[in-house]
Every structure is written in C-alpha cells, then in structure tokens.
Design a protein around this nucleic acid. Structure first.
Lengths: 231, 231
DNA sequence: GAGAATTTGTTCGTATGTATC
DNA sequence: TGATACATACGAACAAATTCT
C-alpha cells in the first residue's frame, strides 16, 4: 500500500516531538529535517504545516518553524476545551446510547486497565485517549470528532511531557468506571459530572508536576532554540 | 507589507467557492487554478490544503480535490457544533463579563442592524458572523476560538448557498438582542437558551429553503464534476 | 481492458526576505 | 547601521498514478 511521503514524515516528526527528542522551542529547519529523513523539502514543508494545524508546531512566514511551547495557560485551555467537547458528546449521546456502544466503552476501559496492570505505559496512554475519544464519539458528529482528533496530539504531548518527569502519573480507573456506570444508568448529568471531576483531577496533577519541576523544559528551550541536527 | 502568495490564492479560491462560481463537487485541478491566478502549482497546493482544513474542499491522495458537498447531515452537524461552541463561550464568559465587552457586543449588533437597514446583504452576513464570533470569544480560550474560525467558512458557505436561492433569509434582530440582554443581566442560562432558540430557527430556515429547491445545487454537482476553466 | 492523456507527488534550482555579526 | 549568511517561498521539471477514450 502506498502512503504519501509527507504523512510518513509528519508522523516521524510528531514522534520526535512527543518523545521529547525535539524540545519546545527547537527550531525546525526544513533542510535539516529533509536530510534527516532522506526526502526533499517538499514533504517536510507539508508535514510541518500539518503539525502546525494540530498545535505541535508554530510558524510564521519566512521564519523557521518551532516546536510549540506549552505554558500553564495552554494547559488550562486544552483541558477546558476537552472537557467541553466530551461533555457535549455525553449530553448528546446519552439519549440514543445503545448497548453495543456501551459494551465498546467497557472494552476500551478493560484494555486500559490491562495495559496498566502490565506496566505498559505507552499503551495505557493510548487506551486512555481512546476512552475519551469514544466519549466524544457519542455525539455522532464527525465535525466534533475532527476537533477532538485535532487536539489529541496536544494531549499526547502534554501527557508525555509530564510522564517524562513523573512516570507514575496514572489514571485512576475508578474515575472512568464512574462515567460508564452513569451512562449505563442513562444519567447524563452524573456522567458529565464524573467526567468533569476526572479531568479536573488530571489537570491538577499535570499542573503540580510541572510546578514541581519549575517547567525546566520550557526554560531550557527559551534560551537556545537548539538546532535540529541532520542524521 | 508582504503576504504569502498562497494566502492570496486561498482567499481567491475561497471566494469562488462561497460565491458559487465553483459549485459543490467541482474538480479543482491544480494546473488550471495555477494558470487562472498566474502562479505556480506550489501556492495552489498549499491553498487547497488549507481549504480542506476548513472543510470547503475534500481531497484524497493522487486524486483531484473537489469542492465539498453539504448534505442535510452536514448542516445538522455544523449547527449542532456551532451551538455547542457558542453556548460554551457564554457559559464560561458570563461570570467574568465586563462592561467593555458588553458594549462591544452591542456595537456589533448595531453594525449588523445598520447593514440590514441599508440592504447590505454581504455586510450583514459578516456582522452576523462577527456577533457569533464574539459569543465564542467570551470564553477567552484561543483554542476554542480557533475551532470557531475553522468552522466560519463553512457557515459562510451554507449561508451564501441559501441566500442565492432565497435572498430574503435575514436574521431577526430581536433574537440577538435577547441574547445580549440576558448576558447584561448576568443570566447565562437565559442567554444560552436564547442562543439555542436563535440557532434552531436559523437552521430550520436553512433546511426549509434547501428542501424547497430539492437541493438542486448538489444534484447538479454530482453528475458532472465540471472542470474549472483557466482564465 | 490497453494505451494515451491528464494530473498529482516529489525533487531541485533560484529569488526574496530574515537574522546575525 | 551595513554586509553577509541563512532559510524559506516560489517556480519548473520529472516520474508515477489515475482517468478517459
């Protein structure tokens, strides 16, 4: 099967950013990235545009793109918005919620708990996101879903940033279970409340960890703008 | 001041789509567009990507992009989402709503009414959108605002589509006034209710007009895929 | 269904604008 | 501030895939 080159490049750069190999504020020079991935500048340009679209990269005309920097405000915005989106998904979806969808939610949650039990941190993060993706999906609104997907890489980014400092930040399974159970009862209000509590706790954990470290990551990036080295 | 070429091209194509000169389903051939605007394919490609991002264009690898087609479902999705976003804006913003912001809202509404009084239909649409933009802005969440902006071209598109069939579809000023007054009272619940009623009416009007015409626009587009002619 | 024409995805060269000393 | 080095934005050509006859 054929995949456009820029998609491959986008995913590679995305992984470098999320893994922290490319840190916030780092300059992303098209030539260097092109050399690194053995492609021309075209696909790199497209990849960077796409990464800007999802908020992992910032750029202005005629200047090098940079890896985005997340301040406390960004964290607040992101969580506030995600909360709004998923609450909306629940509100709209709880009425027409069928059994199959509910079982799917249980399934995702079980996968998440299994991954956590096995100590599979990366897998757990993905299953966690998948759970939230499903909450958004309850609304059956493709445009809403697109918005969620657009934000998902920012979520991965902030989660990974924090995990690098404190690998122990794990989701309490109980919180997810509360949401599902409320949904199963058809109690949208309670489900939304449980979700909001869950996300509020998660955001607070994030903030704490970042505070504790003095957000060293962003400080480092602000001074340098380290250049990304070719392969 | 210097503006990137692809921005100009994007706006030109966008206007062609919204004005209906390029109809739903029309193939967008890079070479033709490049010739039409006297630029190379590079900026055109970028412009098309950007238009895909905002939902005015659809494309798949190795195939020509097309002007997006809006079915009844799309209309529902769009209005549902806009309603959610702006309700969220109101809910979050009503607490910290200061007088200056309120006056701004009144100002926008007055501009809207003036434009309508003068029979300036295009201006009225822009002021109408501006009013709704401000509602979203109450949340002071840049990411939420970005989502709204992303959807605004789809709104322009459907509004323009309907106006072409029935130019008389105008906003009832009273509905906007209700929202502002509720905000002025600090009554978020009422403001949200007024907004939702307003948008529900607007959506219904849209649907009616489209139904009445049998959505001829999309039918026509499905058969042909008329090729866009060079200048 | 095969071949020709069309159209995209990619590469590379060049000019213009930006940053740095 | 002025000159230089650097990086992007645009243009043109090539190869591969799709569409049309």
């Amino acid at each position: 099967m054929y995949r456009e080159l820029w998609v491959v490049v986008r995913d590679e750069i995305r992984d470098l950013i999320i893994s922290g190999e490319l840190a916030s504020g780092d300059r992303l020079i098209e030539d260097d990235l092109a050399a690194r991935f053995h492609v021309s500048r075209g696909p790199v340009r497209t990849a960077l545009m796409e990464l800007e679209r999802v908020g992992l990269v910032v750029s202005s005309p005629r200047k090098s793109s940079q890896v985005a920097t997340f301040g406390p405000d960004d964290l607040d915005e992101l969580y506030e918005l995600i909360m709004g989106i998923e609450s909306f998904g629940i509100s709209r979806g709880v009425e027409r919620l069928d059994d199959a969808t509910l079982q799917e939610l249980y399934g995702v949650q079980e996968s998440l708990e299994r991954a956590e039990a096995e100590g599979d941190r990366l897998g757990a993060v993905e299953h966690d996101l998948d759970f939230h993706r499903h909450l958004c999906g309850l609304a059956s609104n493709r445009r809403l879903q697109a918005v969620w997907e657009q934000l998902s890489d920012q979520m991965r980014f902030v989660i990974a940033s924090v995990q690098r400092v404190d690998p122990a930040v794990a989701t309490k399974e109980g919180e997810h279970r509360h949401i599902i159970e409320a949904l199963a009862r058809g109690d949208g209000e309670a489900a939304v409340a449980a979700l909001q509590e869950h996300l509020e706790i998660a955001r607070a954990r994030m903030s704490d960890v970042r505070q504790a470290v003095g957000s060293s990551e962003t400080d480092e990036s602000r001074m340098g703008g380290a250049r990304v080295a070719p392969s």
